[in-house]
Design a protein around this nucleic acid. Sequence first.
DNA 1: GCAAATATTTTAGTTATACTAAAATTTGTA
DNA 2: TACAAATTTTAGTATAACTAAAATATTTGC
Lengths: 224, 224
Amino acid sequence: MQTLSFTEENYMKIIYRASKLSSPGKTKEVTTNEIAELTDTKPASVSDMLKKLAAKGLINYVKYQGVTLTTDGEAKALLVIRKHRLWEVFLVDKLNFSWDEVHDIAEQLEHVQSDELVRRLDQFLGFPEYDPHGDPIPNEKGEMNSKKKVYLINMKIGDKCDVVGVKDTSPLFLKYLDKIGLTIGAYIEITDKIEFDQSLEIKVNNGRTIIISKEIANNIYTLD
Amino acid sequence: MQTLSFTEENYMKIIYRASKLSSPGKTKEVTTNEIAELTDTKPASVSDMLKKLAAKGLINYVKYQGVTLTTDGEAKALLVIRKHRLWEVFLVDKLNFSWDEVHDIAEQLEHVQSDELVRRLDQFLGFPEYDPHGDPIPNEKGEMNSKKKVYLINMKIGDKCDVVGVKDTSPLFLKYLDKIGLTIGAYIEITDKIEFDQSLEIKVNNGRTIIISKEIANNIYTLD
DNA sequence: GCAAATATTTTAGTTATACTAAAATTTGTA
DNA sequence: TACAAATTTTAGTATAACTAAAATATTTGC
Ligand SMILES: [Mn+2]
Ligand SMILES: [Mn+2]
Ligand SMILES: [Mn+2]
Ligand SMILES: [Mn+2]
């Protein structure tokens, strides 16, 4: 049971995410430049790392063609994601952090190595299925829920739906959502779409009506 | 607020511990060879690291004379120890690990950087004063209890006392203590000392009488 | 179908951390 | 004061992660 460095684990997470982008079910080949962008490094560094990860059997790497995760690699990526999200639940549910404060701490905690710890943490938290940002938590087998969530920007006038997740998880964005009441579980109705700037007028929890920009609406996931 | 590498933090812990050895209140100069022994490295490596730690203002380093911690250095060491022990309490009290399973996981968790996390964890645990092995937990200011505990080996026939801590925290030793009932809080009475091998005959919790070797008795702290 | 543009890999090197053997130095002690 | 022990310095290793520039492969536009 090889153990990966922090950096290697972060590459795995990023490759996983990029490979699932756009088509939710399907898996896409991930390119070197894409990874370089996401890891904030240069393509040369990525090539280096891809060789390492391929040698460890974590990715299928055909030079110049991009990479996909192996079964082993996907399990590794899902485990890191599982740990990240479980720790986020712990921080919010047990230590009363707010949802905009937990990401950076979880970035550290996700690298702690102990299967037993993850198992017991999961149990302690009551086997949660979603993290504080609405992202599904893989179970021990790597399985997780996949609600077919829709960006708020794509809703039509008159539609009603629940806020079930966010794309951006930066404190700045999350704090703003707190302020306007658009947190996970909020029930909203689209009352108007302003053509000029594609902003939305929505009614939150059958109460206050607010206007949100397309940038905001493009970072909120809804269901129904 | 400089942040230290895992290795640097581990050196700080070890220097702290070695500097408090023998005389509980007093602080002793710690030598290069001593540190090399404790870190399982060579003196040359230690000299290297001491230069680094001195440059960061964490130790008072006079070449050939050994080192002491600066105020800053002691605070850093105490924070790592605080985090280690708080996490051990978390693992035992909240996740139901047994006291022999938590040290290695705490060795990882102690390096997670977030003052707020430590504060909230401490509160979540109810501001515990001792870890599962009976070691005192420094508070936010670095203050901790110092009971004048005594090795069980030094008790006399007829003495009665509580088990309040262990020196060795290896799973092998702790599992054995579990087996014979000599866990933290056990109330014991020394009923005989065997001259031949310095083993002790003791009565545990006013019940069963058992014999323990001097090696065992030399790793158990008692009070009263 | 081919040239140019773009993407990727290789090469050769950097920086940082941590460690070590052997040589040089300092210190304590006999 | 000489010698042994402790310590530091020197010079070097290993590994991880990264990069600029050159080389190579692939894709795209015409
Ligand atoms: Mn996160
Ligand atoms: Mn999250
Ligand atoms: Mn411990
Ligand atoms: Mn402990």
